[in-house]
Amino acid sequence: MSKPMAGESSDDTLSSPGLHFSSLGSGSKGNATLVSDGETHVLVDCGFAMRDVERRLADQGMHPRQLDAILVSHEHGDHVRGVGALARRYDVPVYLTPGTWLSKRLGDVPRYHWITPQSRFAIKGLDIDPVTIPHDAREPVQFRFQAWGKALGILTDLGHATSHVIDSFHGCDALVLECNHDRRMLAEGPYPVNLKRRVGGQWGHLANTQASALLQVLGLDRLQRIVCSHLSEQNNHPERVLEALVPLLDGDGSRLGVAVQDRGLAWHRIR
């Protein structure tokens, strides 16, 4: 069985034309994903403090002044902790839904643009579709990106896959997908009962088995890359994720990657 390494490196660089993505880190302590078409660079969420995100960007060969935008999926702290500070220091425009703005979790933002769910918008060469998802936030969305004839889906922080989600993320060439918890680990773990219900509920986070079922519905033939994301440090482990997903790929895990909390995942280019 071929298995990917968590936080594995990649030979792909932004010097090659195409649709690229990388993770600065993913989990309950902070989430941030970079997407680029080689010229346009956007950061999806920023759940890390200023110095930490500057360091993580540098590890991916990026400086905050190279960012064309910060996209915010929802207002939870592990997704917005560093958004306001980063936007203010480097004058980066922020894209978010009105509901996320009304949560008042970002502080002052010099430049912002409203996102209307289900309405495509563009940032230079990137076409972006914001997709409504079921999560316990004010107006949460996730994103599908298109450039160079390829499609990348970022799909985390949802309690279950609705028909709308399935339709919106069908046909992607790469997918950053939530694999938050192993159901048995969550049930037997240290969380209080009310938090277990929230995480495992219809408005919480995807379990490994739910991620596996969703991939089967979306179809695997076109997916070049599947990045397992937002793993709980308390209630999941990369090995549990691979046990759930590798069988879908006939035992070949070469298309799988795991975005871990401490070092994310290196750049990958959709070919």
Rank of each mutant, 00 (worst) to 15 (best):
residue 13 T to W: 06
residue 14 L to R: 08
residue 16 S to R: 13
residue 17 P to M: 04
residue 23 S to H: 13
residue 26 S to Y: 13
residue 27 G to L: 04
residue 30 G to R: 09
residue 37 D to L: 02
residue 40 T to A: 00
residue 45 D to I: 01
residue 49 A to E: 15
residue 55 R to Y: 10
residue 59 D to M: 09
residue 60 Q to N: 10
residue 61 G to R: 09
residue 68 D to G: 01
residue 69 A to R: 01
residue 76 H to F: 11
residue 77 G to H: 11
residue 77 G to E: 15
residue 81 R to V: 00
residue 84 G to W: 14
residue 86 L to T: 04
residue 88 R to T: 00
residue 88 R to P: 00
residue 89 R to I: 05
residue 94 V to K: 04
residue 98 P to V: 05
residue 99 G to R: 05
residue 101 W to A: 15
residue 102 L to C: 14
residue 106 L to R: 08
residue 108 D to F: 07
residue 108 D to Y: 09
residue 111 R to A: 10
residue 112 Y to Q: 10
residue 116 T to G: 13
residue 122 A to K: 05
residue 128 I to L: 12
residue 139 E to A: 11
residue 139 E to V: 00
residue 141 V to S: 05
residue 141 V to N: 07
residue 143 F to G: 05
residue 145 F to V: 02
residue 145 F to W: 07
residue 151 A to T: 05
residue 152 L to G: 01
residue 152 L to I: 06
residue 155 L to R: 05
residue 155 L to W: 06
residue 156 T to D: 01
residue 160 H to P: 03
residue 168 S to D: 11
residue 173 D to F: 05
residue 175 L to M: 02
residue 176 V to G: 02
residue 177 L to V: 04
residue 177 L to T: 06
residue 185 M to V: 01
residue 187 A to Y: 07
residue 188 E to S: 10
residue 190 P to N: 14
residue 191 Y to T: 02
residue 195 L to R: 15
residue 196 K to T: 14
residue 201 G to N: 10
residue 202 Q to A: 13
residue 204 G to K: 01
residue 205 H to C: 13
residue 207 A to K: 09
residue 208 N to Y: 08
residue 209 T to I: 00
residue 214 L to N: 00
residue 215 L to Y: 00
residue 216 Q to T: 09
residue 216 Q to H: 12
residue 217 V to M: 06
residue 217 V to T: 07
residue 218 L to K: 09
residue 227 V to H: 13
residue 237 H to D: 15
residue 237 H to S: 14
residue 238 P to I: 10
residue 242 L to M: 14
residue 244 A to L: 03
residue 257 G to K: 13
residue 260 V to N: 15
residue 262 D to H: 14
residue 264 G to K: 02
residue 267 W to I: 03
residue 269 R to P: 06
